[in-house]
């Protein structure tokens, strides 16, 4: 009797290959394949209906898709920059605190400890035009007597979402930049003082270059995070009003699961992935460069 004899290396790798195929490879191939079909969740047999590049053409010419794309880039740019500036400020202030710094560091992490869904609900309440905290406060202080439609007006809704996003994630920057501040050697800062730097110049010429790698790490992490933003928006505005806060993944989610057009959703998903990849690659390049400048090697 002759048994099938596989090469030893293959036998040893087989468990890994099977698991990876099941959880990564097959879904990936399947989703890629389905993006070339008119696959609808409600009609499973439509997965065999090959439409070629139709879905991609449709996405690329779809104004709604590009509006969501642009909004995601806007959210990414505004939120990341705000978070970086605020995180930098908080980190610097915390690093100057001599008593209770440990407590402050722990408190800095609090926003990260909540599920984004919960944060979404919380801010949905805070910005509610009738019973919300913000409007109540504004009205009680006599600043306004109208109910400001925070989540209903298109621009205000985007602002509210950015506010919630910044509230949850500034601490990512805060913590990483604080770590960077701790890692800065004392000597160059003192040399800068002797060399005639004011506090601001020391920061600009010595502290900041040392912090850049940490800032770029935070940027890379957060750009991935924001590029896939879904939960907070879904809860707070559900992409509304009238798609004014529709982001890439709320659009894709709606198309795939609500409209059940999974083939088209997958096609948009593959285009969107490039956005995340682009930002990640960009920030990692920056990170490598800033580390090289500090002579830290690759």
């Amino acid at each position: 009797m002759k048994r099938l004899k596989l090469p030893q290396w293959l036998v040893l790798l087989l468990p890994a290959i099977i698991i990876l195929s099941a959880v990564v490879l097959i879904p990936l191939v399947l989703s890629l394949y389905s993006s070339f079909t008119s696959y609808r969740l409600t009609r499973p047999d439509s997965i065999f209906n090959w439409v070629g590049l139709f879905n991609y053409e449709k996405a690329i010419t779809d104004a709604k898709f590009w509006a969501a794309f642009g909004r995601t880039v806007l959210l990414l740019t505004v939120a990341l920059n705000l978070e970086m500036l605020l995180g930098l400020g908080i980190a610097i202030m915390v690093s100057k605190v001599t008593r209770g710094q440990r407590l402050l560091r722990t408190m800095m992490m609090f926003p990260m400890m909540f599920s984004p869904i919960l944060v979404g609900f919380q801010f949905k309440f805070i910005f509610n035009d009738n019973v919300g905290l913000v409007n109540n406060a504004l009205q009680s202080l006599g600043i306004t007597d109208t109910a400001i439609p925070w989540l209903v007006d298109g621009n205000l809704a985007m602002f509210s979402i950015i506010f919630a996003e910044v509230w949850t994630s500034t601490s990512v920057f805060g913590i990483l930049i604080l770590a960077g501040l701790y890692a800065i050697p004392r000597d160059p800062l003192e040399a800068a003082k002797v060399d005639g730097c004011t506090a601001l110049q020391s920061f600009r010429y010595v502290t900041l270059p040392f912090l850049m790698p940490f800032i770029y790490i935070a940027m890379a992490i957060r750009s991935l995070d924001v590029a896939r933003a879904y939960d907070i928006v879904q809860i707070m505005t559900n992409g509304g009003p009238a798609r004014r806060t529709e982001l890439l993944w709320t659009l894709i989610g709606r198309t795939g699961y609500v409209d059940a057009r999974m083939g088209y959703a997958n096609a948009m998903g593959y285009i969107s992935i490039f956005l995340a990849i682009f930002f990640t690659v960009y920030f990692f390049k920056k990170l490598t460069k800033s580390r090289q400048e500090l002579g830290m090697g690759m």
Partner: peptide
């Protein structure tokens, strides 16, 4: 001032 650890600006 000349420092023990040189204290050069690495960048």
């Amino acid at each position: 001032m000349v420092f023990q650890n040189y204290a050069l600006y690495p960048h």
